[in-house]
Design a protein around this nucleic acid. Structure first.
Length: 563
DNA sequence: TCCCTCTGCGCC
DNA sequence: AAATGGCGCAGAGGGA
């Protein structure tokens, strides 16, 4: 059974089942009715926006098993159809479904993501049109549009996985990542000194700034200001184009060591200091807000808290509750494996049998001994193999990448030509798609103007060429990154339905999940994750796909122990 | 004062 | 000759 629910602009909530529609429900009545229906029938819920509605249900203790998120589906379908600039609001989708011109009332794809992309609020539906009516109409239209794509089965899988991912995201935000604020505070105090009011430099930073100034002969230098650092070095006869860490590292000057230490500690203070703790950690949990599909490639983004960049030094603060474990599972070298599966490169599939793909690839590429690395080149076969593969996926050509990529192309032509065709399509301004149908956006009008015409001078020609190559690098990477996002969406969707209660997902980041589980279930959870990734890959690439997708799940007490 | 861009760095 | 993809966030600094 299918049940539509949503929030009407001022008149409360609505629930529409085949038996009839209830409107104007209070929040409490709505929650009760959703709970009743979920327990009785576990229907497929159709929601304008999981992100907007589901947290309220979770707060009330209600979990939904299955749903269809109209807004996420609308975004994916619009992108597929090459209309990603159009609004994804319910009102706009409803208008389009009726063949009317849609109001331009929402953020376009790729623009700053608003908290809700598919809110029934904002410019609302016309008088007399209910959320249920509009949702039903949009859903029917979406089903038609799915049937019209080249591979409808894959698109259906994508929409289901994306919707379930949205449920998982809301559940993870609600549960939160176990975070020991006491350990975090102790770490800050050890490294920075006692807490200071915001806007002030902690003791350790004050001392380092003084050492930096001394090393520059007593003339004040602000280590927070790159122009100031660059000028100070120039006065010492050292020319640097920027004050970046990797540029400073090799400079022999007494100011450099304290400068590097300052940068590291200053980062800790400003990005994950006391203010961060105050804002993001409550009751021993870090609760970021995930934005499902917030990145054009389908990767997730987060809003606030920088959840996708938890620094390594702070992972020791991520600890399981007493009697519980964190099962940390990381898909090893996900993107090269996805490329292997996408391209059907059989020889690379053999390489993928190894858990350490790059090590095996190194053997495959260099065992003949014919490759002569340049003097300044990478140190060993494994790192050379990694550079070759990353260059294929990112379009890199600097340093050693060119010859290494040539070697990779020679040995694994199917895999390399797959990304090179995607790059060529991008250079022509065409769109590319992921395995399940996520579609790259069209390049901007400015890009078309620059690359489309005949250049009348060399400088323009060069700019056009550069823009074209740049977009090619984007589409080259898109096919891999977006297909990896397909795979992890299916993985999350499957996993959330299978975890043995009370084990639950608490974190997801690109190719990594963390499950918080009672210790006695940790082994079961680990095995479940490992088998689920294999199944998810089969759903994407077919049962006969020979590519191995290892996902080692490790039960630990602290995240820091996972690697 | 506010707003914007740039720089730099954390993560995958 | 060289050009690697995707993000979020904070602080500096410039312009309005």
């Amino acid at each position: 059974m299918q049940v539509i629910t949503g929030q009407e602009e001022d008149s409360g909530y609505t629930i529409s089942t085949p038996a009839g529609t209830s409107r104007g429900l209070s929040a409490a009545d709505w929650v009760a009715e959703v709970r009743r229906l979920e327990e009785a029938e576990a229907p497929r819920w159709v929601l304008p926006s999981v992100d907007e509605l589901y947290p309220k249900l979770i707060d009330a203790g209600v979990r939904l098993a299955r749903c269809h998120d109209l807004g996420l589906a609308e975004g994916l379908l619009l992108a597929y159809e090459g209309r990603e600039g159009e609004s994804r609001s319910l009102r706009a989708a409803w208008a389009r479904a009726r063949g009317e011109e849609a109001p331009d009332d929402g953020p376009a794809f790729g623009e700053a993501a608003q908290p809700t992309l598919f809110s029934p609020r904002g410019p609302g539906l016309p008088e007399g049109v209910t959320v249920a009516d509009a949702a039903r109409r949009v859903l029917a239209e979406q089903e038609k549009r799915v049937a019209a794509v080249a591979a409808p089965g894959r698109m259906r899988l994508l929409l289901a996985a994306e919707s379930a991912s949205a449920l998982a995201a809301a559940e993870m935000s609600a549960a939160g990542l176990p975070w020991r604020a006491d350990l975090h505070r102790a770490l800050l105090e050890t490294r920075l000194g006692p807490r200071v009011p915001s806007g002030q430099r902690p003791k350790a930073l004050v001392a380092l700034a003084a050492r930096i100034t001394d090393a520059f002969g007593g003339r004040p230098v602000n280590p927070d200001s790159s122009p100031s650092v660059i000028r100070a070095l120039a006065r010492e006869g050292i020319e640097v184009p920027a004050a970046r860490k990797y540029l400073l590292r090799d400079i022999d000057h007494p100011a450099v060591p304290p400068l590097l230490e300052y940068k590291e500690l200053s980062r800790l203070h400003s990005a994950n200091g006391w203010a961060w703790l105050d804002e993001w950690v409550t009751d021993g949990r870090f609760r970021p807000h995930y934005v499902v599909g917030g990145v054009v490639s389908g990767r997730w983004a987060t809003r606030g808290g920088g959840a996708l960049q938890i620094p390594k030094v702070l992972r020791t603060c991520v600890r399981a509750d007493p009697g519980w474990k964190l099962v940390v599972a990381d898909a090893a070298q996900l993107e090269p494996r996805v490329l292997t599966a996408l391209s059907g490169d059989r020889r690379l599939a053999e390489v993928s049998a190894a858990t350490d793909l790059y090590a095996r690839l190194g053997e495959a590429l260099f065992s003949g001994g014919r490759y002569v690395p340049p003097p300044s080149g990478s140190s060993d076969d494994r790192s050379r193999a990694k550079i070759a593969m990353l260059s294929a996926m990112y379009g890199g050509t600097s340093g050693e990448a060119g010859p290494l990529l040539a070697l990779l192309r020679q040995r694994f032509p199917d895999a390399v030509s797959y990304v090179e065709q995607a790059a060529a399509a991008g250079e022509r301004g065409e769109r590319v798609r992921s395995r399940l149908g996520r579609t790259s956006p069209a390049p901007s009008a400015a890009w078309r103007a620059l690359t489309g015409g005949l250049a009348d001078d060399e400088a323009t020609e060069t700019r056009a060429r550069r823009a074209s190559r740049g977009w090619g690098r984007f589409t080259r990477n898109f096919v891999v990154q977006a297909s990896a996002a397909d795979l992890t969406a299916v993985l999350l969707a499957t996993l959330r339905g299978r975890l043995p209660a009370p084990a639950h997902l608490v974190f997801f980041q690109h190719d990594e999940v963390i499950v918080h589980t009672p210790a006695e279930l940790a082994a079961e959870v680990s095995a479940l994750i490992e088998s689920t990734v294999t199944e998810s890959a089969q759903l994407l690439f077919g049962d006969a796909c020979p590519v191995h997708f290892p996902m080692q799940a490790i039960p630990v007490d602290t995240y820091a122990d996972a690697k």
